[in-house]
Structures are given as structure tokens and as C-alpha cells.
Amino acid sequence: MTNSVIKPWILGLTGGIGSGKSAAAQCFIGLGVHVVDADHAARWVVEPGRPALVKIVEHFGPTVLQADGTLNRSALRGLIFEDAGQRRWLEALLHPLIAQEIQRDLASATSPYAILVSPLLIESGQYKLTQRVLVIDAPQQLQVQRTMLRDSSSEEQVQAILKVQASREERLSHADDVLVNDRDHAWLQSEVERLHHFYLTLSGGQS
């Protein structure tokens, strides 16, 4: 037995809001797969004391901070939602930092393959960190219903988020695998298990 460690290949997992990405990711975690969540990395890089938060406050002013010194996400969202230039400024600051954080976490994986879960896998270019892409898909009306139920948001709010995310066509054009999540959790679990067994047969994410 040699000491050469085979590096896990990376599966990108994405899907629109309310498609069931997180539920699918939890199923993979239950099967022992190392999962890295880009949203967690995005939160971590703007924690108090991190350089990115200092730059954000310098740029947008103190209104983007909560009283306890943490980032006021809804205030920041309000500032960038209507202003594409400001959104680009923020993305240029955060995307490289988030990518570094993700790569550090992926490098610690010991499972045969690891998963990068990201709602913006396609839009942010994070899919370039992966060898294969799995898209969790769901009919749009179901996405809207699930999200309204989960976040107590209005249909208008959900539709606005859908507009900012990559279109279904764009996501599917990057997909190697598609899981249509329009049934119950038991069915999702069985589909994830089926994919997992298939992924274990792949080397480097390619069949």
C-alpha cells in the first residue's frame, strides 16, 4: 500500500431557489460525502474582524452594519439590488475570497468525491472548481410555493430572486446530471443514493 493519497474529485451541486439543493446536500452528507457550502463560505468572509467587512463598511458606510458590528445583509442587499455597478464592486471583492475559502475546505475532504453546494455555481464561475455538475431542478411554480412557505416571503419577492439567479436553461446547459425534485423526500433520498453509487464508479468525475 503506497502513501499516495488520491484527491477526491469535486461535484458542483446547484439549483434555483426552492429546488431542494439543501435537502439533496443533506442526503449526500448522510452518505458520508464531504460537502462544502458556498453560502457558509460567503458568510465567513464577511464575519466581524475579516478584512472584507472593513472594505464593505469603508465603501458603503456604517449603515451596512448591525448594532453588534455584524453585516446587515438586508441593508446591503437593498443598496446593491437596484445598482448593478455596486453589485459588481461587491462581487469583485468577495468572489475571490469565497473561492479561496471553498478551496481550503475542499482540500480537507477525505471522501472519494466532495461536493460544492452553491446557488450561484454557474453565475459566479464557481463551476470551474468542479469536475462535474449536478443540477437539482423543480418546476418554477413548485419553487415559488416552497420558498414562500419556507421564508414566509411574498410571491413578488421570490420572483425577484428568480430573476437574479441563472435561468433554468442556463443552469441545465452546464449540467452533467439533472435530478428533478418534484416528489417527496423519500424519493429524493433514493435518487441521491442512486447518483452516489454512480459517482463512486467515476474517476475524476468523468464516466
Rank of each mutant, 00 (worst) to 15 (best):
A41Y: 03
D151H: 10
I102W: 07
E91T: 01
N3E: 14
A114S: 15
K21P: 09
Q157R: 14
V164P: 00
Q103M: 13
G61F: 09
M1G: 15
E193D: 10
Q140A: 08
E101H: 14
S173M: 05
H174A: 07
G15R: 01
T130G: 05
S124G: 03
D39C: 12
G32H: 08
R87N: 00
V64Q: 04
P96F: 09
L79T: 08
I122L: 05
E169N: 13
V135D: 06
L120D: 05
Y199L: 15
L120H: 05
S152F: 01
D182A: 10
F60K: 05
A109K: 01
V33A: 07
Q126R: 07
L172Y: 03
E155L: 05
L90N: 01
L79F: 05
D68P: 11
A114L: 13
T130R: 02
P62M: 04
E156L: 12
L11T: 12
S154Q: 03
G18Q: 01
D68S: 11
G12C: 09
V178K: 00
D68C: 11
Q165H: 12
P51R: 02
L142M: 15
G32L: 10
S190Y: 09
G15I: 07
P8F: 11
S4G: 10
D39T: 14
I115N: 03
D137Y: 04
V117H: 00
R168D: 07
D83F: 01
S152W: 00
I56V: 09
A84R: 03
N181I: 12
R183W: 14
V158W: 04
P119K: 08
T110W: 07
